[in-house]
Amino acid sequence: MANTVWKAKRRNLAPWLFLAPGLIMFIVYVIIPIFQSMWISFYDWDGLGEKTWLGLANYVELLDDDAFYTSLKNNVIWLVLYMLALPAGLFIAIFLNQSIRGMRLYKSLFFFPFVISQVVVGLMFSWFYAPNFGLFYNLIESFTGQGIAILADDRFVTYGIIVAGLWPQIAYVMILYLTGLNNVAPDQIEAARLDGAKGWKMLWYVVLPQLRPATFIAVVVTVIGALRSFDLVSVMTDGGPYGSSRVLSFYMYEQALSEYGYRMGYGAAIAVVLFAIMMVFISGFIWKMWRDERGR
């Protein structure tokens, strides 16, 4: 009897032993730093000296900070336009999910942006937009007679950086959907064809419901990619011109870790706001998926 109880306990304990290393690392490197950032946001601190308690003063200061509102507005633009990666990645994945000659070459070409460093992507698009010799500048000049310096124009700079970010993001989403399409049940496809479903109806009623796990991951990584968006801004414009391309992650870095600030508490307050926005979007999507699953 005791041996049977021990075997049952061992079976229950085994999954937790395998999960333990990952859970410990997640708690140490993710959960604890989140609460530490929240705690630091209540202080005035340069990162080295003594902390001075401020309470909510850092958050009150954010309410009157024009640079914060510019960064927040740009992050909203990033979020909205980055969602274009989902339909674009899906349709490319559907195109590539065919058994025709040369498809492996096409797949490798579409996969290529995903394996490039964001820094390299930023440099490539900086040259692409560059006045006088950039391909985009010369194309606009040839059609309109006057080129546009995208990265030097506060009206267009954010959109130019977003286009650069969408290039590898679409490739990432495409990979997720390609994996999901390989798991679509062929019998359901055949049954739908026999019922006369094709085109958009086949996609909407048969294929997309089976791609919910891939869609969930795609939405999460796209939201996170849109909100962090630090590297491209740093490489392509350094927040310029005149701070017009800042996003919250870059503004947090400027305030907390650059020569402009060393205001760790204020930077932490920006990080907390960014985290809250991220959690609202991701939690909302999780809730919608859970509600849809319960309604099935």
Rank of each mutant, 00 (worst) to 15 (best):
E190N: 07
A152N: 15
F42Q: 10
I27P: 00
V60H: 10
E190I: 09
P87W: 09
R104E: 09
S126F: 13
I94N: 03
L227A: 01
I162W: 04
G165N: 01
W39H: 15
S126C: 08
S108R: 05
S258W: 06
A2N: 15
I162M: 05
I224E: 07
I161S: 02
F285S: 12
G145L: 06
L19T: 03
F281G: 09
Q36W: 11
F250V: 03
M124K: 01
Y43C: 03
M289K: 09
P87N: 04
A271M: 11
E61A: 10
Y172D: 00
G261R: 03
A164F: 00
D238R: 14
F111L: 09
V60L: 15
A191R: 00
L86V: 06
E61F: 12
F91W: 09
A276W: 08
A67E: 07
I94W: 07
W45L: 05
V121N: 04
S117R: 04
I100C: 05
A85H: 05
L257C: 06
T158I: 09
N138E: 12
S108A: 15
L23Y: 14
W287G: 13
R10F: 07
M279D: 02
E293R: 12
F95Q: 02
A149H: 12
K51Q: 07
Y251V: 00
W78V: 12
Y260L: 14
A197F: 01
I224R: 13
Y205G: 05
E50D: 13
E293K: 14
A276Y: 09
P186L: 00
T222E: 14
